[in-house]
């Protein structure tokens, strides 16, 4: 009895490891990229200063990637995240500039108020998406395409176009706790929270089941409307957290900030092994994808600058991102093929 139990445990560990071969490969790639740049760029890449500068950069899109992740696991997508993030940032900036200016309320009151306002705006944006997807039944890609335009549009209407400048949140973007910049801490907390939520809660379980087969989920008694609305609400909420980070780093809120992040976060999610057909995806994959993208961006930037000395380097990384995505997909293709071949040979 005892023996069979250990066998079962071993088996599940083994199968769990082989099931995670994608994550292992991604880990290897991430480490490889890091080592390669450390060697090629001696004294530049692997330095405290560079690590710190990378650490304040990646949380901005890394946080947004969680929003994309959870919607993609349900088989949907949320294109409106950047729109929602900017709208939330604008709401916070408005409160900071109108209530917190000279002779206004005290900062200790205005700052929490601004943050809460941002979170509320993000929540509303997410709930609207959830309503459109779950209750109206619009395909998520189209519903959030529409709200992307809507939220961005509202930002333009509110600001009239230009940015709203405020430096009152700069302390979030600039200060650090025990050597870790606050944005990184926020990112790490979100990673832990998402990991627990996806693996150890009923909601997380239902998210995976819904993403695998919505019809079976419905017939199994999962309230799919509620799960979907909650998913998109969370997505909007996470977007508003990203919005606060935007504001704290850029010291301004504007309607068209971070437009390229939509593409980038989808790319990160796919690189992280989150299936766009739903039901598959892990926080570990997402975090590795965020890190590898950041290493690649910074490393390539430095490399191009060193080689050509021109500002074109920022364009090269765009090329590299796309190339990396295709490369990983092709490697996956061959590894699947190889696995199939080995399986049939073994049989």
């Amino acid at each position: 009895m005892e023996e069979t139990k250990t066998k079962a445990a071993q088996k599940s560990l083994l199968s769990r490891l082989s099931g995670d071969s994608y994550i292992l490969r991604l880990l290897a790639i991430t480490i490889l990229i890091f080592i390669a740049f450390s060697i090629v760029l001696p004294g530049k890449f692997f330095t405290v200063r560079n690590l710190q500068s990378m650490a304040v950069q990646f949380p901005e899109f890394g946080i947004l990637a969680f929003a994309i992740m959870i919607t993609m696991i349900t088989g949907g997508i949320d294109l409106s995240i950047v729109g929602a993030a900017n709208l939330a940032a604008i709401a916070a900036a408005l409160i900071l500039t109108h209530l917190g200016g000279d002779g206004g309320m005290s900062l200790s009151l205005v700052i929490p108020l601004a943050m809460v306002a941002a979170l509320i705006v993000g929540s509303i944006a997410g709930l609207i998406n959830g309503f459109l997807v779950a209750k109206v039944g619009i395909t998520p890609i189209l519903a959030t395409l529409g709200t992307w335009s809507l939220y961005t549009g509202l930002s333009y209407v509110i600001t009239g176009g230009p940015a709203i400048t405020t430096t009152q949140l700069a302390f979030i973007g600039n200060s650090s706790v025990v050597g870790l910049p606050i944005p990184v801490i926020v990112f790490a907390l979100l990673a832990v929270a998402f990991s627990i939520m996806l693996n150890r809660t009923t909601f997380g379980f239902n998210v995976y089941m819904l993403g695998t087969n919505p019809t079976a989920a419905r017939f199994s008694g999962i309230n799919i409307d509620r799960v979907l609305i909650r998913t998109y609400w969370l997505s909007g909420l996470v977007a508003s957290i990203a919005g606060i980070i935007f504001l704290s780093r850029a010291n301004s809120a504007k309607p068209d900030y971070g437009a390229s992040y939509v593409l980038l976060t989808v790319l990160i999610a796919i690189l992280g092994g989150i299936s766009y057909t739903g039901g598959v995806g892990k926080v570990s994959g997402l975090v590795l994808a965020v890190l590898s993208i950041q290493f690649l961006s910074t490393g390539l930037n430095m490399l191009m600058l060193q080689l050509s000395g021109s500002s074109k380097a920022i364009f090269f990384r765009q090329f590299a991102w796309g190339g990396l995505l295709l490369l990983v997909m092709v490697i996956n293709y061959y590894s699947e093929k190889w696995k199939d071949k080995r399986a049939s040979e073994a049989a």
Partner: peptide, 8 residues
């Protein structure tokens, strides 16, 4: 389609 989550 209605009963099982085939990939899970």
């Amino acid at each position: 389609t209605e009963g099982l989550f085939l990939e899970r």
